[in-house]
Design a protein around this nucleic acid. Sequence first.
RNA 1: GCCGAAGUGGCGGAAUGGCAGACGCGACGGUCUCAAAAACCGUUGGAGGUGACUCCGUGUGGGUUCGACUCCCACCUUCGGCACCA
Length: 900
Amino acid sequence: MSEASTKRRVERFDPAIEPKWREFWAREGIFTAGRRSGAPRRYILEMFPYPSGDLHIGHLKNYVIGDALTRYYVIRGYDVLHPFGWDAFGLPAENAAIKYGRHPREWTYSNIAESKKSLDVAGIMYDWSREVTTCSPDYYRWNQWLFQLLYRKGLAYRARATVNWDPVDQTVLANEQVDAEGRSWRSGAKVEKRELEQWFFKITAYAERLLNDLDKLEHWPERVRTMQRNWIGKSEGAEVTFLALPPGSDAPEDADPLVVFTTRPDTLWGATFMVLAPEHPLVAKLTAPERQAEAAAYIARARMESEIERTSTTREKSGVFIGSYAINPVNDERIPIWIADYVLMGYGTGAIMAVPAHDERDFEFARAFGLPVRVVVQPPGQELDGDTMAEAWPGDGVMVNSGPINGVPAGKEEGQSVKAAIAWLEAHGRGKGTVNYRLRDWLISRQRYWGTPIPMLHLDDGTIKPVPADQLPVVLPEVQDYLPRGKSPLAAAEHWVNTLDPETGRPARRDTDTMDTFVDSSWYFLRFCDAQNGNEIFSKEAAYNWMPVDQYIGGIEHAILHLLYSRFITKVLYDEGLVPDDEPFKALFTQGMVQRRVRTPLERISPDIVRFPEELRRKLELPAEAQTIEHARTVLKDRGYTLEAENDGSWTAVSGPVTMSKSAGNGIPVGPFVRQYGSDVARIVVLFAAPPENSMEWTDEGVAGAQRFLNRIVTLFGADREAIVAALNAGHDDLSGDAERTLHRKLHETIKKVTLDTEQFRFNTAIAALMELLNEATRYRADTGAVTPVFARMASTFARLLAPFAPHLAEELHLWFGGSGSVYDAGWPEWDETALALEEIEVVLQVNGKLRGRIMVPADADEQQLREWAISNPRVLSFVGDRTVRRIVVVPGKLVNVVV
RNA sequence: GCCGAAGUGGCGGAAUGGCAGACGCGACGGUCUCAAAAACCGUUGGAGGUGACUCCGUGUGGGUUCGACUCCCACCUUCGGCACCA
């Protein structure tokens, strides 16, 4: 160890340097879009949050990733748009208002101020001149404009819909707010179904495009695309028209057409009964008088049940025969009509033909009620019998008992039974091939206060018309009581509700519902392109300038709803010619969660007995209040906890890693952490611990490691700052020494790795590469004992490579090394491939694929030479022994494998 | 049940057909100190050997290949999504 390094003073990374750089960035507008007009553009966006107030580290991860990418592209010379805003409408503000009597607006804006402060002290840099807040009339007026655009295009319509009704809170609930047992999350009451007039957006009109265009989104995670594909749920089949005979009639002229959807029209000849959803509109007419009571009871019961209960696969089949029959159009057979809750009104036509022999659900139903089973697909090598078969046969085979398609191979391909059956149906006018989607239209009405008023007028004669564009926004009125009482709280604002139709002067009532907040977030990324435009939703020019978003970053929990809605609205606006692309987000990255263990101290009541706190006991359902240490250890282990001894002899129960959250109480508040350790430390912890798509565990050890890394940077360069400036000015790098060449090569390897890794979101390995360079540099500095130009060049480059990950320290180093202005104007270093080349390289020698030795050879050694060196190598020879060499595989620059 | 992803040291992870375990954490040993912390240096997949070294090792079993953590087949486990969708 050299004299120089042992005497080196230990300096520490000081978080107190951070505030001045934040002020500097803001003052200089380093991260303001348009600062480098003419440079290549980049739009980087993190999903905007609901403003929940004070942020913890778990919230921060998303923003740290976006900030690192932004800084990387800014230092590379791009013109970057990196804006931020607030998804500020929604229930929490309203609930707080109900609970504390504070106005939702006041509550929301104070939360925004707090959240913004957390982002500021963390040094996450946005172009705040483009900030949007969805609860501001400046924003939601364009929500209303958008609603009216969809209305004009026939994509917004009004219809009756069944909603979840909480009889205790007297309010409508969203599907997500009803638990698996059909109870309200707030009141715990059993939710009822009610029919209400609601507004819908016709997203199903775009189902096919939303599905097909998923193939274009090659920079989206495959699992998100799969989830959207499943959600859209395309299935191809046929609609077949049966004739439903009223009870007691056999005359076809009395019959009503009854359309069913099926993906297996080829099995029509095996239909032995028909099932309608209990809500099906023809049920009332088709129910025989003597069946009336039973059917009504069944329908009432089904109505009480939640969707989840109804669609549970484990429950027994239930249903009621309603006393009438339908005529099967392929063979004119009369089959009984049942109602059963396993048929859903919302999918297909709400009616099915049941083919028990070849459908598992129909089979169960037939066996439960003793209905006949008729085989129409005979599988190869088996003889199915409808009376004895134990389960349905959904597989391949040959069509039998099927009139015109007998003998056709079963299947969906060309020349197989499904296509043949559709051809037959269409030729005879009894049905047609069709496509069905699981996706339903987007119900956007909410009977709640804190949202965008729906900008429509209802006239006394039943006419519904848009509020004229020049009267937008329809501003949310002030109300006394935010508690919904069956209607939106807006309905109580009489002076607001009652207005005049400006065209005719006739009295009109305003729509009292507000829009789903997912409407707000389905186009906010477009508003960022032109956030202050007071005349239009955004200018076409601004949208063409920035859209689509180059990189979108957010949580997997939005994989379906938000992303699907945004894609839909973007397509609508694309069809209007307002945006340049019909997809909003070119690339999507879904980050993992930040987790932290929860530590609960136990009370020690004797040397080997501990007492569990009440809360922990309840949470873990622990049997006893106090336990011996040994027993406590076992009991906790069964619940994923460990028991840890503290230095003072007390004991702590430690949970497994759980996602940081307010409710788990394990969040690390951003402000205090940043003041004590620095935002640069927090960033390194978050980015280095694991690949960003994985969840990561936040630990004290991780914090110490990140701190150590930054301290070692400061220690290595701090004392040498003047010498480094002098060496940088001294001119030529002397690469004649081995140590210098090694350091120079390591530097260029690092530039390459950090560049490529950062572009691929591999921040953990990029930072690992910087650590390796620091290790190499520390070694060099200790061995050389002097600041050489090569070392100085490395130091100044290091500052720039650090800029995406530890921005404050990067600026500080840049300043130390004589840089002027911001490190983000210093340019990103380029690597030199020639610097990566070695004169001598190590080649691996293998015998039968096993490593047996290494030799140093000139980098340009050819295959023949390598072959000779390998077979004359003593270690290789000793492993070859007296066996004959059968083959020699040479990979120049890498290895030689001798096969015997 | 169906679909998808993933299984590598004590831990987070690295290596995507060519030296398994980069980088970090932890642990152990040392230097400094009255002492501790910090910092620094060293060791750290397992087994064997005084040692140079040897054998084993990427969930399990097979396969392809001169060579497999990496590609293919089957299975096991874990996580996520969907789930009576006709």
